[in-house]
Simulated scan of single mutants.
Amino acid sequence: MTSLHSVETPAALIDVQRMQRNIERMQTRMDHLGVRFRPHVKTAKCPDVTRAQVAAGARGITVSTLKEAEQFFAAGITDILYAVGIAPDKLPRALALCQRGCDLTLIVDNIDAAHALNDFGKAHGATFEVWIEIDSDGHRAGIKPEDDALPEIAHALQKGGMTLGGVMTHAGSSYDHSTPDALRQIAEQERAAAVRAAQRLREAGLPCPAVSVGSTPTALSAEHLEGVTEVRAGVYVFFDLVMHNVGVCTLDDIALSVLTTVIGHQQEKGWAIVDAGWMAMSRDRGTQKQTHDFGFGQVCTDSGTVLEGYVLSGANQEHGIVSCRVDVDHDIRQRFPIGTRLRILPNHACATGAQHPEYKVLLSDDSIETRPRFYGW
Rank of each mutant, 00 (worst) to 15 (best):
R184C: 12
E68V: 09
T287K: 11
H115D: 15
F128N: 00
G76F: 05
A83F: 13
A141E: 14
D48Y: 09
V306K: 07
K122Y: 10
K90A: 10
L259K: 08
N22Y: 10
I132N: 06
C102N: 05
F72C: 14
L259F: 10
V54S: 04
R285C: 07
T218C: 14
F294S: 06
E223P: 08
I254G: 00
R36D: 14
T301W: 01
E188V: 12
A210R: 05
G227F: 02
V248N: 04
G138Q: 02
F128D: 00
V242A: 03
I368Q: 02
G85H: 08
L13A: 04
N22G: 09
K289V: 13
L259I: 11
Q185N: 12
P151H: 06
A219Q: 09
L164M: 01
P209C: 09
L104P: 03
H155K: 04
A44F: 01
D79A: 07
A116P: 05
F73R: 07
G85I: 12
T370W: 00
Q199T: 13
G125F: 12
G314K: 03
R283L: 11
A126P: 07
A351I: 08
P88D: 06
T260H: 00
R93P: 01
L307S: 13
G353V: 04
T305W: 05
L363W: 02
E129C: 14
T28F: 00
T179W: 06
A192T: 04
G309C: 05
K159R: 07
V35A: 01
V7Q: 03
G376M: 10
A219E: 10
R283C: 04
T65F: 10
Y236T: 07
P10H: 03
D112F: 13
G286P: 12
N347A: 13
H244Q: 14
